[in-house]
């Protein structure tokens, strides 16, 4: 498939110059074809990012974006020594609110993505078996993923309502809780509420990704394993898991990226709760609401760096190959 490979293909000597010319033309076209996409990427991913990074080194405010001064790393970290000899540190890097948000985000991402992967695997295994009405159940399971977060967050906010919510009523009847809980308002349960909704929304996505992987595994492998008397649990770990791994790894990386940036669900479900404040939420507050535009820019730059570092680490540790499966 490589350019060299094409050239080396057996060809009659006289035809060679024509072929080379064709090849050169193809390569030229390929470059031209990439231009619109690269331009789009520059507009959506290059320029705003650079601008965001630039603003993080200034004292710009939303009301006065163009009239700003360069302040270096002051938004990240700066200090001043008082006359009394005490040094005061300021900036995002010593802001407890920011670190609380980092902790919340990481905690949320790790818990939600791992539970979604496990539940997704279970659901996929069940859906892969044959049963009556498989098409209907599959379609029903796909739905949560296909509806806008803003809608599902509202729906759940209402179901989790402390007085009229159906969930409190159900859990009370089942004896799971002893009194009605204000799921989204309580600091202790807010994160649980967010996790429940996110897992509900995203497990189907994971399950379908894994399901598609499961369907590609040839059935005779299992038949052979059955004949050899391999225990089903061992079959799962030795056959199923390794074979769906490529699909799973790609699914997980997309999920981690989304989970680390989670915004709309928390914004709608548990606004103003410091127990669920994530990096995106905090940086939005500073960018838009608190008139700390430059400070917020510094936070989104940090968020970008943290996610980039995590992604690289994941790709490296998991030996994920981005350009096609890893078999």
């Amino acid at each position: 498939m490589s350019v060299d490979g094409t050239v080396a293909a057996p060809a009659a000597t006289p035809a060679r110059p024509i072929k080379n010319e064709l090849l050169a033309q193809r390569v030229r076209s390929a470059r031209i074809f990439l231009v619109p996409m690269i331009v789009a990427l520059l507009i959506v991913a290059g320029w705003p990012l650079l601008r965001s990074i630039y603003f993080s080194f200034t004292d710009a405010s939303l009301t006065n974006l163009y009239d700003h001064e360069w302040v270096g790393f002051a938004n990240y970290l700066n200090w001043r020594t008082l006359e009394s000899g005490r040094t005061i540190f300021r900036g995002t890097l010593v802001d407890p609110g920011w670190w609380n948000a980092v902790w919340n985000t990481v905690r949320f991402a790790v818990i939600s993505v791992s539970l979604e992967a496990v539940f997704g695997m279970i659901v996929a295994l069940v859906l892969n078996a044959e049963f009556r009405g498989r098409g209907i159940v599959r379609a029903a399971i796909l739905i949560p993923w296909a509806i806008p977060t803003i809608v599902s967050a509202r729906m759940w906010g209402w179901m989790l309502n402390d007085q009229f919510g159906i969930l409190n009523d159900l859990f009370l009847r089942l004896g799971l809780i002893s009194e009605k809980i204000a799921w989204t308002a309580n600091a202790e349960t807010a994160m649980t509420a967010v996790l429940i909704v996110d897992i509900w929304k995203t497990t189907p996505f994971m399950a379908l990704l894994i399901l598609a992987g499961l369907q590609m595994i040839p059935k005779d492998i299992y038949e052979a394993a059955d004949i050899d008397g391999v225990h089903p649990v061992k079959q799962f770990f030795r056959i199923t898991l390794p074979l769906v791994r490529p699909a799973l790894m790609v699914a997980i990386i997309f999920r981690i990226l989304d989970a680390m940036r989670i915004f709309d669900l928390i914004y709608v479900l548990t606004p103003n709760s410091s127990a669920t404040e994530t990096m995106s939420i905090v940086s939005r507050e500073n960018l838009i609401e608190f008139d700390n535009f430059a400070y917020g820019s510094a936070q989104s730059t940090l968020l970008f760096l943290i996610i980039a570092a995590m992604t690289i680490l994941y790709i490296w540790l998991g030996r994920v190959r981005l350009d096609g499966g890893d078999r």
């Binding site: 989304d258 989104s300 981005l322």
Partner: peptide, 21 residues
């Protein structure tokens, strides 16, 4: 490969961070 990675990086920046630009 770099282009693929670059495309992935569009999912690393929070939307709010690029909203104003």
């Amino acid at each position: 490969k770099d282009v693929l990675m670059w495309m992935l990086s569009t999912k690393m920046l929070p939307a709010v961070g690029v909203l104003v630009p």
